[in-house]
């Protein structure tokens, strides 16, 4: 074990590892490209669905159980299936990652909307706001903390799963995992795993900062008071 760690450190210390078309920096950009683009597309699809179900209350069963379906769907199978249909391009990666991210965002968005206090919603109606205004000025801001929880969960899963891009010969940190496995080079696999984990944690922290910034002040104050 100690030997492996020393080897991993040597792997990271190698200056040529970091630059060039196969360097860590290039792999980082590729990994970020797959992960972020997929997450953004997933949010664009999942958020309206979650908001609609939460606002109308129709389809709650669907929204609650979608996350379970998402967990059950084997991503490796989805990637290979789309690959066999579309051929050698990035579609399999993007489709699989978007499909992976959508359910958890829909379920959390719905949960956030469902958790909005009925009295608050009624009060908003009573002051004369119409449906859209209630949605965008009252429900959405109040649901932001839980929606962002969903996005964070999705990002962590997407970053870890984007490893699969390397299986169908694309880049990202997954290259180190698959190449290391093929070359029986555990230090390389370990290095790749560390890079992926660090990227996932960094993005999660960045999003938790965004989550704090987007949370309405009243909600943050209320939470602080109840924690005391």
């Amino acid at each position: 074990m100690g030997e492996l760690i020393a080897e991993v450190l040597r792997w990271f210390a190698d200056g040529t590892r970091w630059s060039g078309p196969e360097g860590v920096v290039q792999r980082l950009f590729e990994h970020l490209q797959y992960s972020l683009l997929s997450t953004v597309v997933a949010v664009l699809i999942a958020l309206p669905i979650g908001l609609l179900i939460g606002h109308t209350g129709k389809g709650a069963f669907f929204a609650i159980n979608l996350a379970s379906f998402g967990r059950a769907l084997p991503t490796v199978g989805v990637v290979i299936l789309v690959f066999l249909v579309s051929g050698l391009n990035l579609w399999p990666v993007y489709v699989a990652l978007v499909v992976l991210a959508i359910p958890v965002i829909v379920t959390n968005t719905y949960a956030g909307m469902a958790a909005v206090d009925h009295d608050v919603r009624d009060a908003a109606r009573g002051t004369g706001l119409n449906g859209w205004q209630v949605l965008f000025q009252i429900e959405l801001p109040l649901a932001v903390p839980l929606i962002m929880n969903g996005v964070r969960l999705a990002v962590v899963q997407v970053v870890a799963t984007a490893t699969i891009a390397a299986y169908i010969s694309f880049g990202g940190f997954g290259r180190y995992v698959f190449d290391g496995f093929a070359q029986n080079d555990l230090a390389q696999v370990f290095g790749g795993a560390v890079l992926i984990a660090v990227l996932a944690i960094a993005l999660d922290l960045a999003l938790s900062g965004l989550q704090r910034a987007l949370t309405p002040r009243g909600l943050a104050l209320q939470r602080r008071r109840s924690n005391r």
């Binding site: 492996l4 962590v156 970053v159 870890a160 799963t161 490893t163 699969i164 997954g174 995992v177 290391g180 496995f181 555990l186 696999v189 370990f190 790749g192 795993a193 992926i196 984990a197 996932a200 944690i201 999660d204």
Partner: peptide, 17 residues
């Protein structure tokens, strides 16, 4: 929580030794 961020494939490979 940290273990969860490690890709499952990498974990399997690292258990191989």
């Amino acid at each position: 929580g940290v273990l969860f961020t490690i890709p499952s494939l990498a974990l399997f490979i690292l258990l191989l030794p």
